[in-house]
Amino acid sequence: MSTQEIRFSGFGGQGIIRCALITGKALSLYDDKFATMTQSFGPEARGSACAAQLVMSDSRILYPYITQPGVLLALSQEAYDKYYGELPKGGVLIVEQDLVKLKSDHPDLKLYRVPATRFAEEVGNRLFTNLVALGFFTAVTKVVTADAMKKALPGLVPDRFLKVNIKAFEKGYEYGIEALKTAGAAS
């Protein structure tokens, strides 16, 4: 797959934009890929919903916006409600398990659930929810390497929280690896 489109979504304050920035930076600076990140600035950016989009590719990206995301990370009910319909058959849907009530089992999608907020609290603060989610995302989608993601963190998270952010990322990542195993076993 040479081009992949990803949407990160949730509510303001969850660090959604940061998720896209970290992933985009990891891909383009450390994974030798091309990545273009856009976010909504228009009227749709108002209110509590928040989304950022990433197009990644092996070659130069021409069209900067996403047309049909293959991966959706939804950390809030509103985000899930708004965007899950965009996913094509076989698309990857990752939701915050305690915040999103699913409307169906989504048999056509690859569905993953992660208690990111709860894990973040265990690590120390729910502020790290996005990093838990990113770790999980990295493990289950494999679009980006965990190594690149960790390298991308300095400058995008405060220096004094770098260690704990990495810890949150790893917690999510490990949970993702487990989730993959279970999913693999199930199918």
């Binding site: 896209a20 920035l21 985009g24 383009s28 600076l29 091309f34 990545a35 273009t36 990140m37 856009t38 976010q39 600035f41 990206i61 900067p64």
Partner: peptide, 10 residues
């Protein structure tokens, strides 16, 4: 333009 101004790339 707004697109180039606001989009992030390497």
């Amino acid at each position: 333009d707004e697109t180039v101004g606001h989009m992030h790339e390497k």
